[in-house]
């Protein structure tokens, strides 16, 4: 099947990629699933959006998606951020699939920087856009070296780095893209999600796929897989906590964005996961600013 544009000029294959490219990506995905956390090199294609803007995630989604899928795309947890809108429109156009903002109805969720608050279910696929897939890259810029470290399971350097943080700052200074160890073997970059989301990766019911287009790597975590954030006995891994609940839906225990309200220090904290927040509000949950904001708006 090919998709024709309105003017009949250009034609694309279903989901944009040609079948040979899809096969190549599909093979990489299968090896990724078979070796959880290992970065499978793949011949990433040039996509009609810039490198660094989700080309890896887009290629993974394009290789996986079928006409019966329902796609959700989020960026920073929100469905309406411009790049999420752009990627969602891309698939609506080249694959003619149904799209949604509802986490529960989506069969494929492509994300940049967040994991939805709502627990993912068996059968769902979470596709992460990854800028730098190599967790050791900032410690050792050379691929030839980091590949050896993974081969030998030699991750001492990462522990040294985290420990230096503690010595210098009293904290592990990594707040996002916090490294995890998968099935006790590969140290893996979870993509730049806040470490708040790391525990959601552990024993998830959903299949998690990671695509790094510019760096040409695909990796995966099958469902029900052990994903442990690196830490130390005396400095156990902990996630961010927020003092206030969401100002709109009063949710506790979710990740919040700080919204600046004026130039006098006024600010509010609201859910980063827009779908989660909307659903709670529909369910009658009201945050302390929900009413006030309406009055202001009127």
């Amino acid at each position: 099947m090919t998709i024709h544009t309105d003017d009949g000029l250009a034609t694309y294959n279903f989901a944009y990629l040609d079948e040979q490219t899809k096969r190549m990506i599909r093979r990489a995905i299968l090896k990724g699933i078979a070796i959880p956390g290992y970065q499978v090199p793949f011949a990433s294609r040039e996509m009609p959006m810039p490198y660094g803007w989700g080309t890896g995630g887009v290629q993974v989604t394009a290789a996986v998606i079928g006409p019966d899928d329902v796609l959700k795309v989020i960026d920073q947890g929100a469905d309406d951020t411009t790049n999420a809108v752009s990627i969602r429109n891309f698939f609506a156009k080249v694959a003619e699939v149904e799209t949604t903002t509802d986490t529960a109805t989506a069969s494929i969720i492509q994300t940049r920087h967040r994991i939805p608050e709502e627990k993912l279910k068996e059968g769902q696929i979470l596709v992460y856009q990854v800028p730098i897939p190599e967790p050791l890259r900032f410690l050792e810029p050379r691929e030839t070296e980091t590949r050896k470290m993974h081969a030998l399971s030699e991750y001492g350097l990462m522990h040294v780095k985290l420990y230096e943080d503690i010595a210098k700052n009293g904290h592990i200074a990594t707040t996002y893209a916090y490294p995890v160890k998968v099935e006790g073997r590969y140290v893996m970059d979870p993509s730049p999600t806040p470490k708040f989301d790391n525990p959601k990766m552990h024993m998830s019911d959903a299949l998690q796929l990671f695509g790094a287009g510019r760096e040409k790597r695909i990796y995966a975590i099958p469902p029900h897989t052990d994903v442990v954030s690196l830490d130390f006995e005396d400095y156990p891994f902990e996630v961010q906590t927020f003092v206030e609940p969401c100002a709109l839906c009063a949710a506790h225990g979710v990740y919040l964005d700080e919204v600046i309200l004026d130039d006098k220090g006024g600010r509010m904290f609201v859910c980063s996961d827009t779908d989660h927040c909307e659903k709670r509000r529909e369910g009658g949950h009201r945050g302390h600013l929900a009413g006030d904001a309406r009055e202001t708006a009127q």
């Binding site: 099947m1 294959n13 279903f14 079948e19 899809k22 096969r23 599909r26 995905i29 299968l30 699933i33 078979a34 290789a63 996986v64 998606i65 079928g66 006409p67 059968g123 299949l207 995966a220 099958p222 469902p223």
Partner: peptide
Amino acid sequence: VFAAQTVFRAVMDAMA
């Protein structure tokens, strides 16, 4: 195109 996608999804789910 669609047959390969369907079979792939079965293999991917089975591998996962």
